[in-house]
């Protein structure tokens, strides 16, 4: 053992000096009391944020046309969720890390068909209504190409959409049952019934909000509220908290990468930033084994401040 040369960044000299009294239990108790008191003081002074959740009912009442446009986009496949790829569907390849489409490899594990899950199935759950019932059977007996034509015709005219007297109106012809769908889904959303219908599986009990959250985030309303709270990704939002509270400041580096090139302009930014952070975490983990990096503290000599009494003696 003594034949090996001493490596200053790996080995530590054996301590042959003195010891001083140390009461570990007392130290722990004092720390606990101090931290406990500080927590109570901070909580009493500042409290904590709890901005009320946004329901689809809120959204469809505050911005009915934003909701209705999102609904038709769920049918024509142009929302984020509709075009997402894995794990929700096969609409796109998803993000790739170089040649590796990681999400696609894992596959569709949380299947979502936005037209069925966000529009048709919720409408089917409504109480009987002759007009809607006939629209649904027209839809189901039509061919896929006929359905696409109807949806496209509605989409082409959707810039004329207005909301008057509780009705979504679009100047469209030959859109089949689609106008009824969009209008009735908007009415359903405004009543609050869609919130419940979207909860996973439509079971009595559920703690899975995947579908309502995806639908909500496909619209512009949630992002509009988030922008006011400075929570968008482009606003370094990941480390921010609602209102004036400190947030997850420890995510600063993760958030930082999204702001700079090449990540800020990349279509694969998420997977690239994650890969970068994984790599940096592994470097931090194995830092004691990496020559050069592990020599930094010895070279910057901050330790001379920490142990200044030792070096002075």
């Amino acid at each position: 053992m003594s034949s090996k040369p001493f490596r200053p960044d790996v080995d530590a000299p054996e301590w042959k000096g003195g010891h001083s009294p140390y009461d570990i239990i007392k130290e722990g108790t004092i720390a606990l009391v101090v931290v406990g008191l500080l927590t109570v003081i901070l909580a009493t002074l500042f409290g904590s944020p709890d901005d009320h959740e946004i329901t689809i009912k809120n959204w469809a009442n505050a911005a009915p046309t934003d909701f209705a446009l999102t609904a038709i986009n769920e049918m024509n496949g142009t929302t984020t969720t509709a075009g997402y790829g894995a794990p929700y569907n096969t609409a796109s390849e998803g993000q790739k890390l170089g040649p590796f489409a990681l999400a696609k490899w894992v596959g569709v594990r949380i299947p979502i068909n936005t037209e069925q899950d966000f529009v048709v199935k919720p409408l089917e759950s409504l109480p009987y209504n002759a007009q809607l019932s006939s629209a649904l059977s027209t839809w189901k007996s039509a061919s896929t190409s006929q359905q696409t034509t109807w949806v496209n015709n509605y989409t082409k005219a959707d810039s004329t959409m207005t909301f008057k007297n509780g009705q979504i109106v679009v100047n469209t012809t030959n859109a089949g049952p689609v106008p009824v769908f969009i209008n009735d889904l908007t009415a359903m959303a405004r009543s609050g019934a869609l919130d419940t219908a979207l909860v996973q599986g439509g079971n009595f009990f559920s703690m899975d909000y995947t579908k309502p959250l995806l639908f909500l985030s496909d619209g512009g309303y949630l992002a509009q509220l988030a922008e006011k709270q400075h929570l968008l990704g482009s606003q370094w939002g990941m480390m921010n908290e609602t209102n004036s509270y400190p947030g997850q400041a420890w995510l600063w580096l993760y958030t930082f990468w999204y702001q700079v090139s090449p990540f800020s302009t990349s279509a694969n930014a998420d997977v690239q930033v994650w890969a970068t952070m994984m790599l940096l975490s592994v470097i931090l983990l194995f830092l004691p084994l990496i020559p050069g990096l592990r020599a930094i503290p010895r070279k910057v000599k901050v330790y001379r401040l920490i142990w200044r009494e030792h070096y002075r003696d």
């Binding site: 006011k228 709270q229 400075h230 606003q235 370094w236 480390m239 921010n240 908290e241 209102n243 004036s244 509270y245 400190p246 947030g247 400041a249 600063w252 930082f256 702001q259 700079v260």
Partner: peptide, 16 residues
């Protein structure tokens, strides 16, 4: 609503 500081690419809430 929070207050935010900007320096070039840096954009941080006063609280953080």
């Amino acid at each position: 609503y929070g207050h935010y500081l900007h320096w070039g690419v840096i954009n941080i809430s006063v609280a953080n």
